Simulated scan of single mutants.
Amino acid sequence: MSDDPHSAADNPAADDFDFVSAGPGVELAVQRAGTGPTVLLLGGLGMPSLTWNISGLPAALADTGFEVISYNARGQKPSSAPPAPYAMTDLADDAAAILDHHGARDVILVGYSMGCYTAQLLLRRRPDLVRAMVLFAGLQPTPMGALVDEMELALIERLGEVPRDVLVFEQLMTSLSPAMLQDPATVRGWHAVMSSGDGGWAAPEGFKGQLMASHEWITAAEPTPEHLAAIDVPTLVLAFEHDLFFPPALCEATARSIPGAEFVRIDGAGHGGVFTAPGDSTARIVDFCRTHRPD
């Protein structure tokens, strides 16, 4: 269930990043922009930090007076890819290591897709770091996510990899809205984008590791009602109208279990709306961050 629409050739070179050690054998490629209170962007499975730029969110936050930190998670080049399996706790601890390295506190987290899992676990494990949280297209997974993860893990077991054409077809069918999928030129254009390059993985272990972490979260029936009720920071939940992995009706119902959470549906987009049709999501996130800006 990859959230990367770009080829590795489109990714910034290693010298465009700073590197943060998150433990033995784990070097994370980090980018920062702007000055002010920190917003940490937590991407989805296989999503390079540059994907955020398509939505305009990093620039908008920096222009509003925030420091924006984004990074390529373990497994994605030029970060390192330690051997699989990875756990969601590993990914949350990686994020904490980045914040600790930069001395960031009172951070606003913005998680997209699997990044929402990371955000929730980071809050549980290091509440001292978190001021507020945006859970974007990733609060409540359906069985569809588990089925796709199981299919991909089975292909890795049998073939050693998930064939690129299978991943591209999956991305097209889940990232685009129904209207986009019905337009031949749009489908051809996004197929060309998604087919290029090698997916940006540092090694096959990176894809397998992130996939196993995602599957672990979903099969543990996360987020549980108890964990949702324990969220004690301001929370904004966003969901895309046509998201097959995180449908808005389920996300809205789940958001009611988070004390004081705000829910917003972004119309006209599928799961990949962050890079195909972000709508007013950037403006809503910036407004939320401005409202909950540390003093």
Rank of each mutant, 00 (worst) to 15 (best):
P184V: 06
P259N: 12
M194V: 07
P248V: 11
F240M: 15
A253T: 14
A87N: 12
G65Y: 08
T254S: 14
F207A: 00
P5E: 00
R265K: 14
D295T: 13
D295K: 11
P85A: 02
P48H: 11
A14K: 13
E252D: 14
G25Y: 04
H227Y: 04
F288I: 05
M144V: 03
R124T: 11
H242Y: 15
I108V: 07
R126P: 08
L41D: 00
G279E: 04
P83W: 00
D165H: 15
M1F: 13
A92T: 12
S49M: 09
E241V: 06
G43T: 01
D295L: 08
S195D: 13
E161N: 09
P143Y: 03
M1D: 09
N53T: 15
H271M: 02
E216I: 06
I285C: 11
H101I: 06
G46Q: 02
N53F: 01
W190R: 14
E222V: 10
R293W: 08
G75K: 04
E241W: 07
G272T: 05
D287W: 08
G270F: 11
T282S: 12
P127C: 03
A87W: 00
A8R: 11
P37S: 09
Q76V: 10
S49W: 13
E150F: 03
P78Y: 00
D16P: 11
S113N: 07
P225Q: 01
A229L: 03
P225W: 03
F19K: 14
G103A: 08
C251E: 13
G279N: 05
G46Y: 07
F169M: 09
D93L: 11
L211D: 00
A269V: 10
A97Y: 14
E262D: 02
M144E: 12
S2E: 02
L50T: 13
W190A: 01
R284S: 09
A154F: 02
M88W: 08
D3P: 01
L57C: 10
P24E: 15
C289K: 12
L238S: 06
G270W: 10
A60K: 11
V20A: 12
F17K: 02
S70P: 04
D287T: 12
P247M: 02
I258K: 11
R256S: 07
